[in-house]
Amino acid sequence: MKKIRVQVALAGAIALSVGTARATDRWIHVRVDERDEGHAHVDLQVPIGMVSGLLPLIKEKRGSGTIRVDGHETDIREMRGYWAAVRSAKDGEYVTIHDDDANVRVAKSGGLVLVNVDEHDGGRVRVKLPVAIVDAALGGSENTVDVDALVRALASVPMGDLVTVEDEDSHVRIWIDDAPAPPSGDVR
């Protein structure tokens, strides 16, 4: 009888651990909707665990170590320097710009790096990156991004929106969730 109880308990534990593994499987979603003439639409969603499986394929094509923002290249080593300064600082607002085109605000709050851009013509950018993700992304050696660490960090950060961009031509959303979502505008 005792043996049966042990077997039942073991089977239950295995079933529970499998169930838990499935339940914690997170998905990263990328959705881009263009509102111009072609109305292009891209919807990608993959389990984060699967991304790590695919990493060996993209590692062969690792980038040059620069990040291009709005046509300007920034060296990753330089980014690391800035990040080290922000990371060790207290929560607060670090950059506030008000000009003719937009209001920009960069802040660190509750383990999140927040970037808000409000363009006067209606465009809006919201970036909400957990510190762990930036740490992982910039934690590589030399001038490379540590993609492995980035994927590991994505698997452990809180679920929700990471990036949303809305302007008159396009809508971009990157978020983490615990389930696949139906594609937007799913009509054929």
Binding site: A40, D43, L44, P180, P183, G185, D186
Partner: peptide, 10 residues
Amino acid sequence: PDAVLVDVRD
């Protein structure tokens, strides 16, 4: 689970 992994319309 059942899911659309890639959906591109253009």
